[in-house]
Amino acid sequence: MSDAYVSLKNLTLAYGKTVVVPDLNLDVRKGELIALLGPSGCGKTTAMRSIAGLMAPKSGTISIDGVDITRTPANKRGIGLVFQSYALFPHLSVFENVAFGLRLKKLPKAKIASMVEQGLQTVGLAHLSDRKPEDMSGGQQQRLSLARSLVMEPKVLLLDEPLSNLDARLRLEMRNELQRLQRDTGITMIFVTHDQAEALALADRIVLMKDGIVEQLGTPDELYNAPNSKFAADFFGFENIFEIEGSEIVGRTGRLTVLIDAKEGYLAWRPSAITIGSGPHQGTISSMAFAGELREYIIEAPLGQIKVTTPSSTPPFDIGSPIAFDLAIDKARHLSKNGEET
C-alpha cells in the first residue's frame, strides 16, 4: 500500500529464543484507527512494545511516514503509549503528570500551562488538576493517562487494552470518548483489545491476530459478516461450526447429509441464523438462557449441540421438549480449510 503511514515489514519478535511474532506485516494509514484483536497471549502487547521502541525486533523494519525508525530509541520516536495499567506517576499531581513530557521538551512555562490545561479539558479532568492519581477513579486515571500521551502530539498513539480495567458502563462511555478524540485530533491510533464488540464499534479496520500471525485484516463489516477462517468465524460469533466430509457435516455426536458443492472445509451458522420451531431436523431443548433482547437455547440433536437464539419478544419454547430446526445452507458461511473463503 503506498499510502501507508505506519508500516511494519517482516517483523519478527522474540523473547530470548521464544519467537512470539514470527512475521508481521501491517500497513496503517494516516489518521486511521486500527484495532489489534486477538486472544490472550497472541502477541498484541509484544507488537505494541516493539512499535513504541521498548523492545527491539529480531528482524524486520518499522517505519513511520516513510522513515525507518527500527533503530530509533524509544524516547526519540514520537510515539505515545497508553498502558493497560495506566503507568501514572504516583508522586506527581494530575497537572504534573500531564506536564511531564512537555517539561522535558523545555517549552516555556506559560505554554506548558496552557497545553496541560487544554489537554485536561479534552478528557474532562480540568477540575482535578491538583489531585494525586491515587485519589482518582479508574476511569479518571485512564483519561489522565490518555491526556498525558495526547499533549505530546504523538505521530502515532498506541493504546494497550485501554478500556479493560473499566466497568461495563464506563467502558461504553470511554469508547465514545476515544472515537470523538480520534475524530477531533486526527491522530493515527492503534489499539489493542481482546473484546470483539469493542473492536467492531471503534475501529476503521481490524487486525485479527492468532499466535502472532495476522489471521484476517479488514473493516469491521468484513470481519463480522465475512470471516474467512474457522478462527475468525468463531471469534465473530459463528458459534455452530461443523467440518465438511464429502456430502456430510460432522458434529460431535453424529453426521448430517447436506446438499453442498464444496467437499471440504467448514460450514458455520450464527445462533441467530438457525430457525427453530419448524424444519427438517429434530432435537431436544436442553437449556435456555434469557439474554435481554434474545433467548439463547442449547439444542441436543443427533449431530451434537447446537446453539440458537430467538428474539425474546417471541414466546419461549419449553426446556426438555422436542423441537424441529433448520440448518439452512443459504444461511451458512462456508469456510475453506486454509482460510480462504470460496
Binding site: L54, A74, N75, R77, L81, A87, F89, L104, R148, S149
Partner: peptide
Amino acid sequence: RSDMEEAAVLLGCS
C-alpha cells in the same frame, strides 16, 4: 512497577 519508567521514556526521558 517498571511500566512507569517506560512511560517516562516514551514521554522523552533517557
